[in-house]
């Protein structure tokens, strides 16, 4: 029982059984959120450090709440107010933190592979909370949890992931995760935002939004990362929105029970119209709520794992 691994770095090397264990555990964790006393003693005496080199509201808060509800001590290190601002390297920051004996370090970093690098330095478990354009596994897991909760199953479902696939760690983690549990995955976006050879991950590629969403069960809209758009990948925001924005009229061509997801934060009126984001099929806030339960499951399964010796 349990995860036979120290770290959670990428969905690419998770097995379907591990994913199932995490989702099942998260289901039990969700019950704690519905109680008056939202705290269980499972991780008493464990220390969780949130080390965030990039801005984040929901992921950091969600890991913090998850840790606190499990009774772990949670410390947030944001880089602007720490020694990182003085030029300390990730390795030295890692070793410094290690000397304080944390049990879990949650890392968000702009460089792909940063979590793996840190995991090799530390005895503590490392959870990748987003490394560059590489992976964001806890987001993929909470998305799978939310889909399973609504649809009652995962296998055989069809999902379309829409937007800037090339720069999206959420897309990469979701593709791996969805494929492993037996879902069909499509990606759609402007050619300039679709990586070469993306089809090798076992996805169907579309450049026409309407065709891509016609018969899918889930539409996952990605945030247009305005901070990464200096490269001129599309002519104008308005054109992107006109071709790849999810609007009510466009949604008419989709299945009547289609579910809409978005990892947030959303650009209202760019990749998703406000009526759609706030509409009945939108799971955006369910995703946030479930994020806490899924992260509780991850913390329990990693920190609660039997220590060798």
């Amino acid at each position: 029982m349990g995860l036979a691994r120290k770290d959670l770095l990428r969905m690419q090397d998770m097995t379907a059984d591990e994913i199932r264990l995490i989702l099942d555990t998260a289901e039990s964790m969700k019950q704690v959120a519905g109680r008056d006393i939202k705290k269980v003693p499972a991780l008493r005496g464990k220390t969780l450090i949130n080390l965030f080199y990039e801005a984040s509201t929901r992921t950091r808060t969600s890991f913090e709440i998850a840790g606190k509800w499990l009774s772990a001590d949670v410390i947030n290190v944001s880089t602007s107010s720490s020694s990182v601002a003085k030029g300390e390297s990730l390795k030295d920051t890692g070793l410094t933190l290690q000397a304080m004996h944390p049990d879990i370090v949650v890392l968000r970093h702009p460089a792909s592979g940063a979590a793996e690098f840190l995991a090799k330095q530390l005895a503590a478990s490392v959870i990748n909370a987003g490394d560059g354009a590489h992976e964001h596994p806890s987001q993929a897991l909470l998305d799978l949890f939310t889909i399973r909760e609504k649809k009652g199953r995962l296998e055989g479902l069809k999902a379309a992931i829409v937007g800037d696939i090339a720069h999206s760690r959420v897309a990469r983690s979701s593709i791996h995760g969805m494929r492993k549990v037996g879902m069909e995955v499509r990606v759609a976006g402007p050619r300039t935002m679709l990586p070469c050879f993306i089809d090798r991950l076992g996805v169907e590629v579309f450049t026409d939004l309407e065709r891509a969403i016609a018969d899918v069960d889930i539409i996952m809209m990605l945030r247009l990362q305005l901070e990464r758009q200096q490269a001129g990948l599309f002519p104008s925001l308005r054109e992107y929105s006109r071709l790849f924005g999810l609007t009510l009229p466009r949604l008419k061509g989709a299945k009547s029970d289609v579910l809409i997801m978005h990892p947030g934060p959303i650009n209202r009126g760019v990749e998703i119209a406000p009526e759609v984001a706030d509409g009945p099929y939108s799971l955006i806030l369910n995703q946030v709520e479930n994020g806490v339960a899924v992260r509780m499951a991850l913390l329990y399964l990693l920190a609660g794992a039997p220590q060798a010796g």
């Binding site: 991780l43 499951a297 609660g304």
Partner: peptide, 23 residues
């Protein structure tokens, strides 16, 4: 009632019981 999260032997050698639902 599932008491897994309240056990006093979590994290000890060889023990990580499955958490199931309290309903």
């Amino acid at each position: 009632l599932d008491v897994t999260l309240y056990r006093d032997d979590l994290g000890r050698v060889g023990i990580q019981p499955e958490v199931r639902k309290t309903e």
